[in-house]
């Protein structure tokens, strides 16, 4: 039994989410190979080869894969998949896009957001925004799985020395053209791998007011998150949304500021180790999941907190 893990990366660096997916792969048992698809991505292949427990790294390095478009990467993965018992990748937007397409090409079902490996064919996954946990068993010959990264501790980035093998199959996505991207650049820690997160909601009131959230986050060395309401209102960009349909996070500390605690928001953060809620409404549902609650006006509490830390 050999498991194929597909790397999340930006052609230069392996993204930490890959390490969580590798951790899930280890629980399946069997040998583990990593597939890197990209363009000028040899550095990523080398990083993957250095991970303990990886037996081989396959790298498909070609300009046609620069944007990792689902139309072509799914074909490449589907071509390689029959040699493996499982194909896994982290449940990032890249693989939410690519893996179902791959599964359909293989005529198999897919299991999304695996949060626990019960055995090689049985998995737990959240449904209904995490308000129920389903145990599912797959009888497919190739099991295609996306991994909820917060549910698995990352493997170590060192200790291995796998062989790197080049893959030459080329699939071009002729019908789809990449036009551009607006990728937020920030010196703050990345939301999904941050140890500390300060999140703001509709209560923050405006884009300008979000400055107090950023100031607190910077003082703490924390990442910044947000509720859907804050994103919809244009206070912050979409990539900060935490929740059922945004990012799932589980930091050491999650501070929810001016967020009411709708189930769709809780779905993305309730596995955080420590939750702090700051809200002027003592009845806000967020207090029911918070380890520490502070009732009051965020516009006095947050600056005071920033000053005193």
């Amino acid at each position: 039994m050999t498991v194929l893990v597909i790397a999340e990366h930006d052609n230069q660096n392996l993204k930490p989410a890959t390490l969580n997916a590798l951790s899930a792969a280890q629980q399946l048992g069997g040998a583990i190979e990593v597939l890197v698809i990209g363009s000028n991505c040899q550095a990523v292949a080398q990083q993957a080869a250095a991970i303990a427990g990886v037996s081989k790294v396959k790298v498909s390095d070609n300009a046609v894969y620069a944007q990792q478009l689902a139309e072509n990467t799914s074909q490449l993965i589907a071509k390689l998949a029959p040699a493996y018992s499982h194909v896994l990748a982290p449940a990032t937007t890249t693989f939410k896009d690519v893996l179902p397409r791959t599964a359909a090409l293989l005529a198999v079902n897919m299991v999304s957001d695996v949060m626990a490996v019960v055995s090689a064919d049985t998995f737990k996954r959240p449904i209904y925004a995490g308000n129920a946990i389903a145990t599912v068993q797959s009888s497919d010959a190739i099991k295609v799985l996306s991994v909820r990264t917060t549910a698995f501790d990352p493997v170590s980035t060192s200790g291995g020395s796998a062989a790197i093998e080049a893959i030459s199959d080329l699939f071009e996505a002729k019908q789809t053209q990449f036009m551009g991207a607006e990728i937020a650049k920030s010196d703050r820690p990345e939301l999904t791998s941050a140890k500390l997160i300060v999140s703001g909601g509709r209560g923050v009131g405006s884009k300008e007011n979000f400055a107090i959230i950023y100031a607190l986050a910077d003082k703490m060395g924390a990442a910044v998150g947000a509720s859907r309401a804050a994103v919809d209102a244009g206070y912050v960009p979409n990539d900060l949304q935490v929740g059922q349909t945004g990012k799932v996070v589980a930091p050491e500390l999650y501070m929810a500021v001016g967020i009411s605690g709708a189930i769709q928001h809780l779905a993305g953060m309730k596995d955080s180790k420590v939750i702090v809620a700051i809200n002027k409404d003592p009845e806000a549902p967020i207090f029911q999941v918070a380890d520490y609650g502070l009732v009051g006006d965020l516009f006095t509490i947050v600056p005071e907190l920033t000053a005193k830390l």
Partner: peptide, 26 residues
């Protein structure tokens, strides 16, 4: 080909404590 074996409620998080002010929170 994917069978639902069982459905369980998630592990509940217990509500913690309320703190009176910023100093107590820190």
């Amino acid at each position: 080909s994917v069978k639902m074996i069982k459905v369980e409620p998630p592990s509940e998080r217990k509500a913690g404590i309320m703190v009176p002010d910023v100093d107590a929170l820190i």
